[in-house]
Simulated assay, not measured.
Amino acid sequence: MPRVPSPEASSREELSIKFVNTVAWRLRDLVEDRIATSDSILKWLVDAELADRRIAAQLRARWKASPHEADAFLNAAHGLREALYRIFIARIGGGRIDRTALADINRYLDAALGGVALGPVGDTLRWLPTAGKVAPETLLKPIAWSAVSLLTGPRALRVKQCQDERGCGWLFVDESRTQNRRWCSMGDCGNLAKSRRHYRRSQAAEE
């Protein structure tokens, strides 16, 4: 079975990029969705520090009693993720921006940051819900704001897509000095690409 790029490969990426990369092997016929269930999206939100374990437990209990609420949130999260992907890909390829995708993102901006605010956690600052009863959609707002900050800033043209020939499809921000990075991670797709090139050169030399 093909090896899937590890989560660590994008651990330093922008929040919005990490969210888009919850789909692995985007350019293959069979993709891997890492937030395909309500439990997996809650775990991702906790790992991304957009929710703590108390909030996750609260939502898990609510969704157990109201599965349709869990399904609605999961659909909203997937919709935002795919809208972000379409816009990032358009910027990478110089294509036309999908206005439907823009509208999907702007829904999270229209209500500003109601329900979520910057707050202290120990000696760090994080996005924190401001209401006692969490509206799940508020947890997605920082992701949309992350994308807006990236897309309207000087790093917008540094967003690229992994060129791994197996179809990885992950996005990344190229912070290299020469701006010639091709893979999501040298430890994953980059090393495999180098190994394949070496193997092909060895085979050609033997012929």
Results as ranks from 00 to 15, higher is better:
L109K: 04
L109G: 10
D110P: 02
A111N: 01
A111K: 07
A112W: 05
A112T: 12
A112M: 12
G114H: 10
V116F: 01
L118H: 06
G119E: 14
G119T: 09
G119R: 14
P120R: 13
V121G: 00
V121P: 02
V121T: 07
G122A: 10
D123Y: 02
T124Q: 12
T124L: 09
L125S: 10
L125N: 04
L125T: 13
R126S: 04
W127C: 09
W127L: 11
L128P: 01
T130W: 04
A131S: 10
G132N: 14
P136L: 02
E137A: 13
T138W: 11
L139N: 02
L140T: 03
S146C: 07
S146Q: 04
A147C: 01
A147V: 01
V148W: 00
V148R: 00
V148P: 02
L150G: 00
L150D: 01
L150V: 00
L150M: 04
L151Q: 00
L151C: 02
L151F: 03
T152D: 03
T152R: 05
G153I: 00
R155H: 11
A156Q: 09
A156F: 00
R158L: 09
R158D: 11
R158G: 13
R158T: 03
V159G: 06
C162Y: 10
C162D: 08
C162T: 11
C162Q: 11
Q163P: 06
Q163R: 14
Q163S: 14
D164E: 10
D164W: 12
D164A: 14
E165Y: 04
R166Q: 03
G169Q: 10
W170I: 06
L171V: 05
L171T: 04
F172A: 07
F172K: 00
F172Y: 12
V173K: 05
V173Q: 03
E175N: 13
E175R: 15
R177V: 07
T178K: 15
T178I: 12
Q179M: 08
R182C: 08
C184L: 03
C184G: 04
C184K: 04
S185W: 04
M186N: 09
M186Q: 04
G187D: 13
D188M: 11
D188S: 13
N191K: 11
N191F: 02
N191R: 13
L192T: 12
A193P: 10
S195V: 15
R196G: 05
R196S: 13
R197V: 14
H198M: 15
H198V: 15
Y199L: 15
Y199P: 08
Y199H: 15
R200W: 07
Q203N: 12
Q203H: 14
Q203M: 15
A204F: 10
A204L: 15
A204T: 14
A204P: 13
